[in-house]
């Protein structure tokens, strides 16, 4: 699996992705937890609509929401949640972890392996959590 280690606020524009890839090719210093291309693509497809292009919980759908989505860039808030609970919330939805129904279950869209990769990506975005 192709791993990427650059750009904490990641590449949501193709040009930025190319830049990141170029940067990777000549830089050996790895910053943060590695993540997969697939996790980034899944985040940009399914999560950005609510969690935002900046990963700050301010997606295009949030204007009228009664409960705001989790800010994935918040190291403190994200750092308090174990990996298993994050995976559980993604797979089975907010209600499964006593959170909002507005977070749907993605277990029919992403495999357990993809969700595991997504958790690793979230750890990279927040720069926090179980591996820190």
């Amino acid at each position: 699996m192709n791993m990427k280690t650059s750009l904490r606020i990641p590449a949501f524009l193709p040009a930025a992705a190319l830049l990141a890839a170029g940067f990777m090719a000549c830089a050996s210093a790895a910053a943060g937890t590695p993540y997969t291309e697939r996790a980034l693509r899944n985040y940009d497809t399914y999560c950005v609509q609510c969690h935002g292009v900046k990963r700050n919980g301010r997606g295009v759908n949030t204007r009228d929401m009664a409960v705001q989505p989790r800010d994935h860039s918040d190291a403190k808030g994200m750092g308090d949640i174990p990996d298993e609970e994050i995976a559980h919330a993604i797979k089975d939805g907010g209600l499964a972890v006593n959170k909002s129904v507005l977070m749907p279950a993605w277990g029919n869209v992403m495999s357990d392996e993809e969700i595991k990769e997504l958790v690793a990506y979230l750890r990279f975005v927040c720069n926090c959590g179980s591996t820190k």
Binding site: F12, D44, T45, V48, Q49, G52, V53, K54, R58, G59, V60, T62, R63
Partner: peptide
């Protein structure tokens, strides 16, 4: 409202992402 597909038509705004 955000086109098809939304991810290609949203950008960060002052408060939340906008179309």
């Amino acid at each position: 409202p955000a086109g098809e597909f939304y991810a290609k038509h949203v950008k960060a705004g002052d408060k939340e992402d906008v179309v």
